[in-house]
Simulated assay, not measured.
Amino acid sequence: MKIVLFTHPSFLPHQSMPRFAKMIKDGMLEKGHELTIWTPQPFFFKLSFNRSFLQKWFGYLDQYIIFPITVKAKLLSSNKDTLFVFADNALGPWVPLVKKRYHVVHCHDFLAQQSASGILTENKIGVTGKYYQKFIRWGYKKGENFVSISYKTQNDLHSFLDKTPKISQVVYNGLNQNFESIEDKNELRQTLSKKYKIDLSNGYILHVGGNAFYKNKLGVLEIYDQWKTDFTGNIPLILVGEFPSDQLIIFKEKSKASKSIYFITDTDDLQLRQFYQGATVMLFPSLYEGFGWPIVEAMASGSLVITTGENPMKEVAGNAGFYIPKKNFDSQELIKWKTVAAKELERILKLTPQEYKEAVEKSISRSKEFSAQSFVDSIEKVYQQILISK
């Protein structure tokens, strides 16, 4: 196959999307297919002088004015049998450029779309943001073929389309790093304790994720605070990800458990894998997800996972996950939610060594269903199906 992969520009701050695009690129090249990446270059962006406001708008010029002109020029000499692959549904504005050619759009989540449409009331979107999401939706609706990373994402996609897609398949994400468990966590915990000057010798509760509203990072702190209030456990909470927001910092400072809460930022891939491997349990009470990478990453690393009992979290964790209700923001219901979640956390922490071992084995077994090879094999079949569909 001849494949052109559209990706997010490298001058924008993305983390998971470049990894996803790399998984497609490496997988297709390894299978012997020809693959070229088309992505915007920073012409106007370079003139922004590192000012965030100018970077945003100058970046838009590069993406939606200059880049389409470049694409149209390249299309004149591209093979008619080329398959154009969009690594993310957020790249929707470029889909109309190749709508009459073989194409497919990979869909991750529609949280921004749902927020802009007023479906997710927890996340308020400004006027310009609503127009931007409308622009994205206008684009991907021109597509005919889609691959979604979960059935939840596929259902959300179909709710935004005006017609039934020609092809719409679900292909679960594959692990794009070598996450694996270790036999003895004690030595690793001692190493992490020395490096970060935190006593992790008895284990720790882990959270991995950014500050986006749907990650419910405040909810992680609320559960831990409730657990420290209701029970006598004394292991720390480690939150790996972005620098905490003011809201998170204020909550930590007011919490009775403040001295046991640690925000770890600027970790590399090795350090992230180590935190997964050393964790007693990962707390991941997301409100919404497209897939939930950290769930599989933690399971593959030999950690248990407590997450929200709704899709796609349940879809991903399956019978290896431990579930709590979705957070309710009503004041009375919030108290109930924190109490229930804290009890479940305590229950997991009190598992006998044999029960814990069996639960870890189940987690590792579940994670093997999300291999990079399985992902690549599955999308190759979809790509081939598209090329013979006309």
Score class of each variant (00 low, 15 high):
Glu187Ala: 13
Thr352Ile: 06
Ile65Tyr: 12
Phe45Thr: 03
Pro93Ser: 00
Ala320Arg: 00
Glu358Ala: 14
Gln169Leu: 13
Gln177His: 06
Asn311Arg: 04
Gly309Gln: 06
Lys327Cys: 14
Ile295Tyr: 03
Ala279Val: 03
Tyr323Gln: 08
Ile335Met: 12
Lys326Phe: 11
Asp26Asn: 13
Asn186Ser: 15
Leu91Arg: 00
Ile3Tyr: 13
Lys390Asp: 04
Val281His: 02
Lys72Asp: 08
Trp57Tyr: 15
Asn234Ser: 14
Gln15Tyr: 11
Gln373Val: 06
Thr191Cys: 15
Asn173Pro: 09
Asn216Leu: 13
Ile182Gly: 14
Ile69Ser: 08
Glu344Gln: 09
Lys141Phe: 10
Gly241Ile: 01
Pro68Met: 01
Thr153Arg: 02
Ser168Val: 05
Thr339Ala: 15
Ile235Gly: 09
Ser48Arg: 01
Lys25Ser: 07
Pro9Met: 03
Val340Phe: 11
Lys124Ser: 15
Ser52Arg: 14
Ser374Arg: 12
Phe322Ile: 11
Ile223Tyr: 12
Thr70Ala: 14
Asn328Trp: 12
Leu75Lys: 07
Ser115Arg: 07
Lys130Val: 07
Thr339Leu: 15
Glu34Tyr: 10
Gln55His: 07
Phe11Leu: 07
Lys197Ile: 10
Trp227Val: 05
Ser181Leu: 11
Val98Asp: 00
Tyr383Cys: 04
Leu61Lys: 06
Ala90Ile: 11
Glu30Cys: 06
Glu34Phe: 14
Leu221Lys: 03
Lys46Gln: 08
Leu29Phe: 11
Lys141Arg: 15
Lys256Phe: 11
Val71Pro: 01
Phe45Lys: 01
Lys195Val: 08
Tyr204Arg: 10
Glu242Val: 05
Lys124Pro: 12
Ile24Thr: 02
Asn211Met: 04
Thr352Leu: 14
Pro294Leu: 07
Phe213Glu: 06
Leu111Asn: 01
Ser286Trp: 04
Phe110Asn: 00
Ala279Phe: 02
Ser77Ile: 10
Tyr224Cys: 02
Arg19Gln: 11
Ser150Ala: 10
Gly219Leu: 04
Ala212Lys: 09
Ser260Glu: 13
Leu387Thr: 09
Glu242Asn: 15
Asn311Tyr: 03
Leu29His: 09
Val240Phe: 02
Asn234Ile: 07
Lys99Cys: 07
Ile205Glu: 02
Asp81Arg: 12
Gln15Trp: 12
Ile379Trp: 00
Ile37Glu: 02
Lys217Gly: 04
Tyr323Ser: 06
Met17Lys: 08
Lys80Tyr: 10
Pro96Ala: 04
Glu289Phe: 03
Glu355Met: 14
Tyr276Phe: 10
Lys338His: 08
Asp88Tyr: 06
Glu289Tyr: 04
Gly241Phe: 00
Phe243Asp: 08
Ser117Tyr: 14
His33Thr: 09
Ser378Ile: 04
Lys100Tyr: 07
Phe49Cys: 15
Lys194Gln: 12
Asp81Gly: 13
Asp184Arg: 11
Asp81Cys: 13
Phe322Arg: 04
Ser258Val: 05
Phe58Lys: 00
Tyr64Met: 04
Asp377Lys: 12
Leu157Pro: 03
Ala359Leu: 09
Glu344Arg: 13
Ile379Cys: 10
Ile66Cys: 02
Arg101Phe: 05
Met17Ser: 06
Ser159Tyr: 13
Ser181Ala: 15
Pro285Glu: 03
Leu157Asn: 02
Pro165Leu: 10
His207Val: 05
Gln271Ala: 06
